[in-house]
């Protein structure tokens, strides 16, 4: 009995000491930044290579779990939604040769690709869905990115409960990855509002928060450091990694 009490208390003492020291270190900005070296190391060593695993139709989750925020409630989105997205235009601007405003009908007329892939949320859960849409690479080609463009920033028609705009970014290599889609349909049906209608990003080689919903504008930039809080995405600005490979 004594031994069991000793064991339990020594483990608890070690972990609780670890937790309180860890929390103090975590709140120290210099130490917190230092911990970030692992992301740089992973990004440099591993990069974005390989393909996400593709699955069979029978693996698909009929009700694909909704990730991230609820459907935008603002007037602009509601108006587009009520008009069945006839007035929707995907804007492509920034470091491009030709600024574009592409309608949903145009996107649907482009070459379509679909993949059945697993969506892994940073929280830890996974779901499998069949996404159909156009390759982001093809959409970028319509606008012809300039040589100075290094990142593709996706601005969403969505704000957090605190009013911060949702955005995400990929480097050009990730954006041109063969499985990276601007998805228009999920499980053989046009995207519904909760899953990002009319257009969402789908990057199966990266964690779910990268697959931004309700994409309204694509901006090509040389650097994302002067956008919002400077970390390249809504969740990145909250402390999550920019490099979110799976």
């Amino acid at each position: 009995m004594k031994r069991r009490i000793f064991l339990a208390s020594s483990l608890s003492a070690a972990l609780s000491g670890c937790s309180s020291i860890g929390t103090k270190l975590n709140d120290n900005a210099a130490f917190h930044n230092f911990l970030g070296v692992s992301e740089s190391l992973n990004r440099a060593l591993l990069g974005t290579h390989g393909l996400a695993r593709e699955y069979a139709d029978s693996d698909v989750d009929a009700t694909f779990r909704i990730n991230g925020f609820d459907t935008p409630m603002d007037a602009h989105y509601s108006r587009l939604q009520n008009g069945n997205f006839r007035d929707y235009r995907l804007l492509i601007d920034g470091a491009v040769e030709r600024r574009r405003a592409i309608s949903l009908a145009h996107l649907n007329d482009m070459a379509q690709q679909s993949n059945i892939t697993r969506h892994d949320c940073v929280e830890g859960w996974s779901a499998i869905g069949k996404f159909r849409g156009v390759r982001l690479a093809d959409v970028l080609d319509l606008a012809a990115p300039k040589a100075s463009a290094r990142y593709v920033v996706l601005h969403c028609m969505d704000r957090s409960p605190e009013g911060l705009p949702y955005y995400e970014s990929l480097d050009l290599h990730q954006a041109r990855h063969p499985q990276t889609l601007l998805a228009l349909a999920l499980n053989d049906k046009p995207l519904d509002a909760a899953h990002g209608a009319p257009v969402r990003l789908r990057v199966p080689t990266q964690l779910g928060y990268k697959s931004a919903k309700w994409v309204g504008r694509i901006e090509l930039v040389a650097s994302y450091s002067n956008l919002f809080s400077g970390h390249g995405g809504y969740w990145e600005d909250q402390g999550y990694e920019w490099y979110a490979g799976i």
Binding site: S12, L15, S16, C18, S19, S20, G22, T23, N26, D27, H32, L35, G36, V37, S38, E39, N42, V122, E123, W235, Q238, G239, Y240, E241
Partner: peptide
């Protein structure tokens, strides 16, 4: 009392874990 950081923060937990 058993987690790092003590308060709920997935982003920070991942930062520590990957480091």
């Amino acid at each position: 009392w058993i987690t790092i950081p003590a308060y709920q923060s997935l982003a920070d937990g991942r930062r520590w874990h990957l480091f």
